[in-house]
Design a protein around this nucleic acid. Structure first.
Length: 504
RNA sequence: UCCUCGAUAGCUCAGCUGGUUAGAGCGAGCGGCUGUUAACCGCUAGGUCGUUGGUUCGAGCCCAACUCGGGGAGCCA
């Protein structure tokens, strides 16, 4: 039986197999928190119930020891899953060696070195369950509408958008690259099957060390024949609504466990604001307000607030340290204050980071040059003003990919669309309507100095029955990161690959 | 590639303007306690202060280079 199914055995008996996630012990009673992958359940081993032999075994268990526990299923509202198991039998598979991950806090580097074990912790369990819901939800959304899931190759001979950030490998003596996008293949598939989506790994050899970059990540790339950019936006919004609704419906417990405030997720079920690049620029520069809020003014307010908070935090740290310096404090009290100080120092670090960042955001927002692509700070400045993802379309064609169609009414704009997640998460989707004219494409390929011969097959798509079509790419990990409100993408994927991280 | 912050016990951190035997909590081991939720209380063990070189009577602390890591810029999903 699995922990998830305990409700069906209430009042009866159950046999659980799993790992010891936590243990607390008193004379005559041992509390084992068992973890089996489907959930967590406290098992109570009482000396007078099981006898000295079994009790001795329970008492000798270490963290992450593997066991089988038989017992009575009792409802107990104090427990996470709502049930506990009152043991009458215990079988030990293995008494684990000293487990490196303790119940206290750890640093990122240590945890990443132990990622294979870190995944067992409740927070990671919750995140991975949400990731699973998101993946399943995306498949369901497209499958139910009749899209075909198709796979683009991972080895590619040509670069989709330039070669600078590609991983090069050896393909029987010829250079080959790991795919940085399946999009061009997606377009070929859409011309064959109408509406398709790819769902696969993508590789970017960017030496970026930021909280939103991975070298290997999973991308969903739908491509639809006969769709224009506005229909494309409908699909993006529909898909994200579907995903958010599914996560809210199936992962309430997990969201609570990781402390995710669901208010913004609920409000993201509203229609997403759609604005042109021009309008977004006016908002970033503070020339246009959003619901009465001005970007620059609100940044200034935040800067003031952060400065005041930092002073308060520093003062509290000083006070608590002074208190600790005095003799005669009880051990528990000392531990309490030390814990507080640790928390405050973390907050201090975060505030200091804000104080470094915000002035830069203000500067870059005030001096934003019309015609440029948005940087990370510009996205933050814009999305802070919304509680839903924002869709920005019609970008200056110079900053966007060669395959995007121009706005027929304004040739300076390309029909690309970026979806920017709120709360500072930035770009989660990039897409647009594709150029249909072979000659215009050729011209762009020349301008971008791309090897024409590698794109001949792509140009064929415009020679034989060219049609309007659109699509987009969704970064799975960025969506997981936003929905779970994680500080870093590395927690959104089982084994993240990024600059400086290849093991485990 | 650039900017910025950091590296002290198994883990998370403290260590004042350079000063003699480097501290705490957690974890581990032992003991105590029938209901705990990061349980609690007592005791014990545990350190070549990232590496190399320099300054100094004296370096965990100052300087330089390197290595590794955090955050950011660029680039992007």
């Amino acid at each position: 039986m699995y922990i998830k199914e305990l409700a069906s055995a209430e009042g009866g008996t159950a046999s659980l197999q799993g790992w010891v996630a936590n243990k607390r012990e008193s004379k005559g009673i041992v509390f084992l928190v068992l973890r089996d992958g489907t959930g967590f359940c406290q098992c109570v081993v009482a000396l007078d119930q099981v006898g000295p032999e079994v009790f001795e075994k329970a008492s000798g268990l270490t963290m992450e020891s593997s066991v089988k526990v038989n017992g009575r299923v009792v409802r107990d509202e104090r427990q996470v899953g709502g049930f506990e198991l009152q043991a009458d039998g215990l079988e030990v598979y293995q008494v684990a060696e000293e487990y490196p991950i303790s119940k206290k806090e750890h640093g990122v580097d240590f945890l990443m070195d132990n990622r294979h074990l870190w995944l067992r912790s409740s927070r990671q369990w919750a995140i991975m369950n949400i990731r699973n819901t998101i993946i399943y939800s995306i498949h369901r959304y497209f499958q139910e509408q009749g899209f075909l899931q198709m796979d683009a190759p991972i080895f590619t001979g040509n670069a989709c958008e330039g070669t600078s950030n590609l991983f090069e490998t050896d393909f029987y003596g010829d250079p080959a690259y790991l795919s940085q996008s399946g999009q061009l293949y997606g377009e070929a598939l859409a011309m064959a099957f109408g509406r398709i989506y790819t769902f696969g790994p993508t590789f970017r050899a960017e030496k970026s060390k930021t909280r939103r970059h991975l070298s290997e990540f999973w991308m969903i790339e739908p491509e639809m024949a006969f769709y224009d950019i506005f229909q494309n936006m409908e699909v993006i919004e529909g898909m994200l609504h579907h995903v958010i609704r599914d996560v809210l419906a199936t992962n309430r417990r997990e969201l609570e466990l990781i402390g995710r405030d669901t208010a913004i997720l609920e409000s993201s079920l509203k229609p997403f604001p759609r604005m042109t690049y021009d309008e977004a620029v006016r908002i970033i520069r503070g020339e246009q307000d959003v619901n009465g809020v001005n970007s620059i003014a609100s940044l200034r307010e935040e800067l003031t607030a952060a400065t005041a908070r930092l002073e308060a935090v520093q003062q509290e740290i000083a006070e608590r340290e002074a208190g600790l310096a005095k003799p005669g404090m009880k051990k528990g009290e000392i531990a309490f204050h030390q814990g507080k100080i640790l928390q405050l120092r973390k907050e201090q670090d975060d505030l200091e980071e804000d104080l470094r960042n915000i002035p830069q955001w203000i500067e870059s927002a005030e001096n934003f040059q019309y015609g440029n692509d948005f940087g990370g700070s510009d996205e933050t400045v814009l999305t802070r003003l919304f509680d839903v993802p924002v869709m920005v379309y019609d970008w200056p064609h110079e900053v966007k990919a060669f395959y995007l169609k121009r706005n027929p009414d304004d040739q300076s704009k390309a029909r690309g669309v970026d979806v920017l997640a709120p709360e500072g998460y930035g770009e989660i989707v990039g897409g647009g309507e594709r150029e249909t004219d072979a000659e215009k494409l050729k011209q762009k390929i020349v301008e971008h100095e791309l090897p024409m011969e590698a794109f001949e097959w792509y140009l064929d798509l415009r020679r034989y029955g060219s049609v309007p079509h659109s699509g987009f790419g969704l970064g799975l990990e960025r969506v997981v990161t936003w929905i779970c409100k994680l500080k870093h993408v590395r927690e959104s994927i089982p084994f993240g690959r990024m600059y400086g991280r290849l093991l485990p």
